[in-house]
Structure formats: structure tokens, C-alpha cells
Design a protein around this nucleic acid. Structure first.
Lengths: 177, 177
DNA sequence: AGCTGTTTACTGTCCAGACAAGTAAATTAC
DNA sequence: GTAATTTACTTGTCTGGACAGTAAACAGCT
């Protein structure tokens, strides 16, 4: 069943390597899931390349955008806004703080919490970040009409909602066995 | 311009927190990009929850699926198949090796390379992994007709292709200014 | 009051993924 | 046959992300 074992070395690199999916069918698994996986990695990498020029990493720009938009927030608020994780937010905020983009101020009403606020220096980045997101959007949706953009967004959100719902629902005790 | 500065502490937690997008418009950035970001994280988390029961982490199952499907491969082949990164593949393969799911065998024709092959033990996972991917696919595309699945896939691949093309193209010396 | 349970934040420990830099083998150029 | 280049792989370092566990402050309750 593994008769193609030695093929990999007999013919290194002379394969077709068309675009991204040289595999006919079986190893592709769920095609939609696989597409989500690849799209996400590409998208993230692309965002990373754009963001690194201004000293941010993917994910950090979302925190900053919410802070610029909404003003000082507790970490837990940012976590909920971004659907993120408390541990991740602790480290992200610390790195943003070390980079000089946010400042922590103890909450006057809750000794557990601190308020995260953007620094004056950070506002110099705001236009750049917004420009990058517009660029990302334009590149992602190159060649899409307005209708197709709306359609794409609807598809993405529908997929997301399916996962949100399934996530809320516990892993289903047993399929019946 | 930051008149809503003190609002966050005056009213902690009493905000609406509807579903995932409480933000009206501005902080949402590119809606499609943002949707990709959230969908990807959710999808990954979901896959992680399913995979952890069988001792795999997201990403590893893709390596295994290709190995099961195609037989022994060099790392560079896996990198290209998955559109991945050589450094990441080195570590992923090492972890899979430590977990007992793959084995390395020096390539008989190239002293730089080794061939990665699935162990007999790994085949016990194959059905489970395939079941998980079917489950992931079903959950993601719950309520989608066949046409809608095809449409969703087309949208995802079109977005991906746009990013692939833009990535190949250098960052464009200057926008003209 | 005191006790209990929740909320907020943090740390440690995993993992993938990206980038940079380096090594050794193979290939190509001369 | 030697030098330069390319290829395959590795390691170091940084990041986000997820899970588990901790400590402190808070809130509700008897």
C-alpha cells in the first residue's frame, strides 16, 4: 500500500507544484476547514509583514484600535471585545506597555483591575494602523464587487457563528454509541 | 477628543456585550479581515479541543494526514505541501517523533535530508483524525446546502489567492505618495 | 460579622508560527 | 577539480494563543 515510498527522493522538486493544492482529494480532509487554515495563516503573515514596519505584531493592533476607539479599558474588557484570552492579554498589554504604546493606571474603583490607556505616542500610529487594515482589506478582496464583498463577509460570519454555537454546546456526551 | 475616558469605570460591565461585534463601525477595521481573524482563532481552538483528546495539536494532524496519504516525505516536501515553514516543520516533526507518531530515516540519496514516515502506532489515529476533520467540517458548514458549501469554499480560496498573489508581489516600492 | 463564591489579573508551561542566522551537503559554475 | 551557489535542515528568539493553577479583591449571603 506504500509503493510510492521511494518516489520522494527519486524526483526531488521536479513535481508540478501548481498552486496550493496539488493533492487530489483524500489528504485534503475537510476542504473548507483546510481552506480556513491556510487562509488564516496567510492573512496573519501578511498582516505581520505590514505591521512590523511600525513595530506592532498581529493581534496587538486590534488592542490598540479598540483603545483608540473606546478609551481606557480594563484588561477583561479588552479580552471580551476581542474574544481573546486573559493570559494572552496580560502578556500583550505588557509588551505594548514596554513598547511605549499603552500605560496602566490603577482603577479607582477596583483594586484588582487597572485601566489600560493608549499613550500620546501611540496616536502617531493610529493612521498607519488604519491604513494597513484598509490595505489588508483591499488586497484580500481584490477583484470583489460590493456584492461579492458582502457575500464573502456573510460566509465568514456564518461559519463563525456555526463554530460559536457548537462551542457553546458541550461536546455532546455521546453520539449514541 | 477623549471625553469618554472615565466611562469605563463608571459603568463596569453594564454594557451590552451583545454577541461578538458590539462595536458600531470604526474600530472594526476591515470587516472581512476582522472576520477572517476571528473565524481562524475559533476554528483553531475548536480543532484543538477535538485533537487534544488524541494527543495531537492543531497543525500536527495535517502533517500526519499527508504522511498517511502519500507515504514517507522529506521535511521540505511537507513544508511545501502545507505551505508551511521549514523551522516550524523541524520542531513539529521532532514533537511528533517524541510522541511516537513518526520516525526519521536518513535519505539514501541525500545526506542532508531525512525521510519522515508514520509509525505503525500512528495508524491507530488515522480514523480518529479523519473523523475529527469530518466533524469540524460538518460543524463549520452546519446549515449549508451543497451549493453554499461550494460557494463558501470558492470565497475562501479566492481570498487566499488574492493574498498569495499580493505576497509574491513585493510590497510595491511606493504608492506614489 | 464572617464565610463562600465569583471576578480580575498574573504566572508557568505547552504549542504553532515567523524571522534571522548558521551548518553541512549537494549542485552548479568556472 | 575547485569555488560559488543553492538546498535541506537546525537553532535561537520573538510573538500569539490555549490551559491550569494561584492570589487578591470583590460581592452576596447567612
Amino acid at each position: 500500500m506504500a509503493e510510492s515510498t521511494s518516489e520522494a527522493e527519486r524526483d526531488p522538486g521536479a513535481r508540478e507544484r501548481e498552486a496550493t493544492v496539488p493533492v487530489p482529494g483524500a489528504a485534503a480532509g475537510g476542504p473548507i476547514s483546510h481552506a480556513i487554515f491556510r487562509l488564516a495563516r496567510l492573512h496573519r503573515m501578511f498582516a505581520g509583514q505590514l505591521l512590523r514596519r511600525i513595530g506592532l505584531h498581529p493581534g496587538q493592533e486590534l488592542v490598540m484600535m479598540h483603545l483608540w476607539e473606546l478609551g481606557p479599558q480594563r484588561q477583561i474588557d479588552l479580552v471580551r471585545l476581542l474574544d481573546s484570552d486573559a493570559a494572552t492579554m496580560t502578556r500583550t498589554v505588557r509588551r505594548l506597555e514596554q513598547a511605549g504604546f499603552v500605560r496602566r493606571r490603577p482603577s479607582p474603583t477596583d483594586k484588582r483591575a487597572s485601566l489600560i490607556e493608549p499613550t500620546a505616542a501611540s496616536y502617531a500610529l493610529r493612521r498607519e494602523v488604519e491604513r494597513i487594515w484598509i490595505q489588508l482589506e483591499d488586497i484580500s478582496a481584490t477583484g470583489f464587487s460590493d456584492d461579492e464583498r458582502a457575500d464573502a463577509l456573510a460566509v465568514l460570519e456564518r461559519l463563525e457563528q456555526n463554530l460559536v454555537r457548537a462551542d457553546a454546546r458541550p461536546p455532546e456526551p455521546d453520539t449514541g454509541h
